[in-house]
Amino acid sequence: MSSALVPSGLVDALRKARRVAILTGAGISAESGIPTFRDALTGLWARFNPEELATPEAFQRDPKLVWEWYAHRRELVERVEPNAAHRALVTMEQHVPKLTLITQNVDGLHQRAGSQNVLELHGNLARVRCFHENTVIPSWEDTGEVPPRCPDCGGPLRPDVVWFGENLPADAFEKAVEAAAQCDLFFSIGTSGVVEPAASLTRLARQMGATVALINLDVEPRDVPPLYQIHGKAGTILPELVQRAWPERT
């Protein structure tokens, strides 16, 4: 990759930053082979619209169908590995005094790569919670029933993810807002920037005076500080950015 894709001003901003906030979306995981919600489903699921399965109403109508759809998604995630973009963010966290990683993804790839300070705005596929009591359930008896039952109340278990029409976890979002408001440098990586309320974090960071970098395949390139728009794959751009910021340590 030509280093021209990574503006020197952004390299300097990263090297000098004391507080960095990063928002990641489906694009960063797509480079590991995880389909986004905009991708057409394949195989047995080709006749379904994922946005129609990811709702509380769909689960109430057909809990077995929704549970099996998410089991399929978990299997996809288990077969892939974190990519170069995930690993570059781990390196960045090791060099920046205060880094907060805010993700809309539910695949856990940031944690598997080694990131420590991760705020999950949309939950995690690896966890389940009770549909009735909304509590995370670490284990349950496997009776073969689909979906399995909550060991406490007997209600159905559901994925611990945020469905369409549901609120984001308040604690995680409050911490995300704080990180965006206080950062020197804000990255929006692999996300469209239009889904609220997560999209408001980028605006907040700009309003509070942070340098902002958008890295996505859907942006028009712009190199005018304090806003950088870099068109390209995160798995190519982030390793280059980190290597140029700390060449003696990477």
Rank of each mutant, 00 (worst) to 15 (best):
Tyr70Cys: 05
Arg127Gly: 04
Gly193Met: 03
Thr236Leu: 14
Gly43Gln: 07
Leu204Trp: 01
Arg74Phe: 06
Arg18Met: 10
Pro226His: 14
Gly27Thr: 00
Ala198Asp: 06
Ala181Met: 02
Ile28Met: 05
Arg87His: 13
Lys175Arg: 15
Asp218Cys: 08
Thr250Ser: 14
Ala180Cys: 06
Ala46Asn: 10
Ser2His: 12
Leu204Tyr: 06
Gly27Phe: 00
Leu227Gln: 11
Glu220Gln: 15
Arg149Leu: 08
Pro50Met: 05
Glu78Pro: 10
Leu10Asp: 03
Gly190Pro: 05
Ala179Ser: 08
Ala88Asn: 02
Leu99Val: 03
Leu125Ile: 06
Pro169Cys: 11
Val136Arg: 15
Gly9Met: 07
Gly232Glu: 11
Ile230Phe: 11
Tyr228His: 05
Ala181Val: 13
Ile189Tyr: 03
Pro225Leu: 14
Ile22Val: 15
Glu31His: 02
Cys183Trp: 04
Ala58Phe: 00
Lys64Ser: 13
His110Cys: 09
Ala126Ile: 10
Pro239Glu: 12
Trp67His: 03
Gln104Asn: 11
Lys16Ser: 13
Arg79Ser: 14
Pro159Met: 00
His122Cys: 03
Glu51Asp: 12
Arg127Leu: 15
Val80Leu: 02
Thr42Ile: 03
Leu101Gly: 02
Gln207Pro: 01
Ala30Pro: 01
Ser200Phe: 01
Cys150Val: 06
Gln94Lys: 15
Glu248Asn: 12
Val177Ala: 07
Arg74Val: 04
Pro151Tyr: 11
Thr211Gln: 06
Gln229Val: 02
Leu109Gly: 10
Ala198Pro: 05
Thr55Gln: 11
Asp184Val: 08
Val219Ile: 02
Asp184Asn: 09
Asp171Gln: 13
Trp140Thr: 11
Ser2Val: 08
Leu204Glu: 01
Val128Ser: 03
Leu241Ser: 10
Leu76Asn: 04
Val96Cys: 07
Val90Arg: 01
Asp184Ser: 10
Leu65Cys: 05
Leu119Gly: 08
Val146Lys: 00
Trp45Gly: 00
Asn134Ile: 10
Glu75Lys: 15
Arg87Gly: 00
Asn134Gly: 07
Gln94Phe: 00
Val161Asp: 12
Gln111Tyr: 06
Ala58Ser: 07
Ser192Arg: 13
Val66Gln: 02
Ser8His: 12
Val212Phe: 07
Glu120Gln: 08
Asn216Phe: 05
Thr250Ala: 13
Arg244Ser: 08
Ala126Met: 13
Gln116Thr: 10
Leu157Arg: 09
Gln207Asp: 14
